[in-house]
């Protein structure tokens, strides 16, 4: 038994690394701490190493280096006590086609060492709208219902730390809504949740904190609100009627840049700021008699952020020579 120390993190990862037998380096020594009761989103493009990270913690992938502890229990040395507290909904739908819904969920509960509890299982299945299907064979269910079954299996032993690997990939609107309701309900009961996604909106909607992972490196961990500020930047590009040799002094108060040999004026601004500065810029330009033929705005996408972050990261590692 662990000491009920409120400061023990739900998940503490140090230097966790994975190089697959094929030689692919899926994780480069990742460090991460997730506090008890937190909802943490791992955000990253396909192939970033999200699934590898989760699988290395859960025991499905053997790490090449580093450690992970779940509520203070080492996932390799004290794997029994660590795993009892973990629930995992994997990315792929892996189910036993010939089993019934009820049987497969009861199987999961006892596999994790919990005594049978028909009342708990019934409530779980009702919450996931699976109760009416309890005697159906899993192969008779739709994809969405199968995913609900996987969630029920993961929750069957009442875990304190739940991993949801791309929970909404290919999921219909109903299930998406139910899933988020469920996640909120679990959080109220104190369950810590780590989910992965490659949709920024999803991370924004659900998570307290977001970790951005790319090419096996956790390049940024931020409060969701802080990250959103960085993400909420837009670029305004004005195609000038006459090219400018340099920026006029009258426009000094805006963060401007010239592009395309002075044919374009580029302004980057924060959409969430009180005043974006766009109307005043246009007024000032008209006062200075700087005309423009066309304009467009562009939201900095997740892709841009990744490219930016990965680039910065490469520069940093190159500089430190590691």
């Amino acid at each position: 038994m662990t000491q009920p120390d409120p400061d023990t993190p739900a998940l503490a990862i140090t230097g966790l690394a994975k190089t697959y037998a094929s030689g692919v380096v899926a994780l480069h020594a990742v460090d991460l701490v997730v506090a008890k009761g937190e909802i943490f989103a791992l955000l990253g493009p396909n192939g970033a190493g999200k699934t590898t990270l989760i699988n290395a913690v859960c025991g499905i992938v053997t790490p090449s280096g580093g450690h992970a502890a779940v509520f203070g229990e080492d996932t390799q040395r004290d794997y029994r006590s660590a795993r009892r507290r973990i629930g995992l909904v994997p990315q792929e739908l892996h189910t036993d086609a010939f089993e019934t819904v009820l049987a497969t969920v009861e199987f999961s509960r006892t596999l994790f060492g919990k005594p049978r509890d028909p009342a708990f299982v019934e409530k779980l299945l009702r919450d996931l709208t699976l109760w009416d299907k309890r005697d159906a064979k899993i192969m008779e269910l739709s994809g969405g219902m199968k995913r609900r079954v996987m969630i029920a299996k993961a929750l069957s032993h009442e875990p304190d730390l739940l991993f949801l690997d791309e929970p909404t990939a290919g999921v219909d609107v109903d299930l998406r809504r139910d899933m988020w309701d469920m996640v909120r309900g679990l959080r109220e009961r104190g369950v810590t949740i780590v989910l992965t996604t490659h949709y920024i909106e999803e991370a924004e909607e659900m998570a307290d904190r977001v970790g951005v992972i790319a090419k096996g490196r956790l390049i940024l961990v931020e409060e969701t609100a802080t990250l959103m500020k960085k993400m909420g930047r837009k670029t305004l590009t004005l195609n000038l009627s006459e090219p400018l040799a340099r920026l006029p002094e009258g426009l000094g108060q805006w963060d401007l840049a010239l592009a395309a040999d002075g044919h374009e004026l580029v302004y980057e601004f924060d959409t969430q700021a009180e005043a974006t500065g766009v109307p005043s810029l246009l007024r000032a330009m008209s006062d200075l008699d700087i005309g423009f033929k066309d304009l467009n705005t562009r939201q900095s996408s997740l892709e841009d952020i990744f490219v930016g972050l990965v680039h910065d990261n490469n520069v940093q590692t190159a500089e430190t020579g590691s």
Binding site: C58, G59, I60, Y79, R80, S81, A82, R83, R84, I86, L88, P90, E92, H94, T95, D96, A97, S108, L111, F112, G113, K153
Partner: peptide, 14 residues
């Protein structure tokens, strides 16, 4: 083959 081994591998069982 079916991938359900994930559950056995992640279970607290030696």
């Amino acid at each position: 083959w079916a991938g359900t081994i994930y559950e056995i591998l992640s279970a607290p069982i030696s």
